[in-house]
Design a protein around this nucleic acid. Structure first.
Length: 217
DNA sequence: ATATCGATTATCT
DNA sequence: GATAATCGATATG
């Protein structure tokens, strides 16, 4: 099994606000292959974005923004490029980036990453012992797992500017050539579950969910 | 004040 | 494949 399909990591240039100031579908598709970076002192965590979902805003029944602009969802209604972090199932944090523009909600949920830098630190944060290369899959596959690997919490990261390196959490482009993109329905939702708004790098081992969703019985 | 419900994961069988 | 764990946000009384 080849896990490191996207090494080596080349110099990373941060994405600007205009990148996020577009529709969630557009941003989701183009975020594939980009890099999520956490800078903490001289320590850097980095991982390639391999799976995301688009949430369309107030008119999307599956989106948190459907509840309107509340204390919880305020970031979604703010300017684009900011982190929306929510707590779910009593255990997990999930990371989104806001899209569209001020006053118009919309976001992209990060569902899976491929670890690039700081792998030891991610393993420690996840309480995973790295025995074989297969264990790398436990680090950042799934929205709750990737948040834990990056130490993302609501108090620490909700509302932080993902276009600014000085925020310590940001998104960049290292020139990785994105090959195939696969679009499927979103995972884990009950409303609007049929819409194809989940975007994955085809064939990437770090994508979450069942290996063969068609094999149902 | 209390009840309900998740954009999930780990841990069983 | 099935389910328990776990708690903040939200709705309702």
């Amino acid at each position: 099994m080849t896990l490191y399909t996207s090494l080596p990591l080349r110099p990373v240039r941060q994405l600007d606000r205009a990148f996020f100031g577009r529709s969630p579908r557009r941003v989701a598709r183009e975020l594939l292959g980009k890099v999520l970076v956490r800078d903490c002192g001289k320590l850097r965590l980095a991982a390639r974005i391999v799976e995301v979902e688009a949430y369309l805003g107030e008119n999307d029944p599956a989106a948190h923004a459907a509840a309107g602009n509340t204390a919880r969802t305020a970031v979604l209604f703010g300017p684009p490029g900011y982190a929306y972090v929510y707590f779910i199932y009593g255990n997990h944090y999930c990371l989104n980036v806001s899209c569209e523009r001020e006053g118009k909600a919309g976001s992209v949920l990060f569902r899976a990453l491929e670890p690039l830098l700081g792998i030891e630190e991610m393993a420690r944060a996840r309480k995973v012992t790295l025995r074989s290369s297969r264990d790398l899959l436990q680090l950042t596959r799934g929205p709750g797992r990737l948040a834990e690997a990056f130490g993302i919490t609501r108090t620490r990261d909700n509302g932080c500017d993902l276009t600014s390196q000085s925020s310590g959490l940001w998104i960049g482009d290292d020139g990785f050539p994105t090959k195939g993109i696969q679009v499927t329905p979103r995972i884990g939702i009950s409303k609007a579950a049929d819409q194809p708004l989940r975007y994955v790098l085809a064939g990437n081992a770090f994508v979450s969910g069942r290996k063969n969703p068609a094999a149902r019985a």
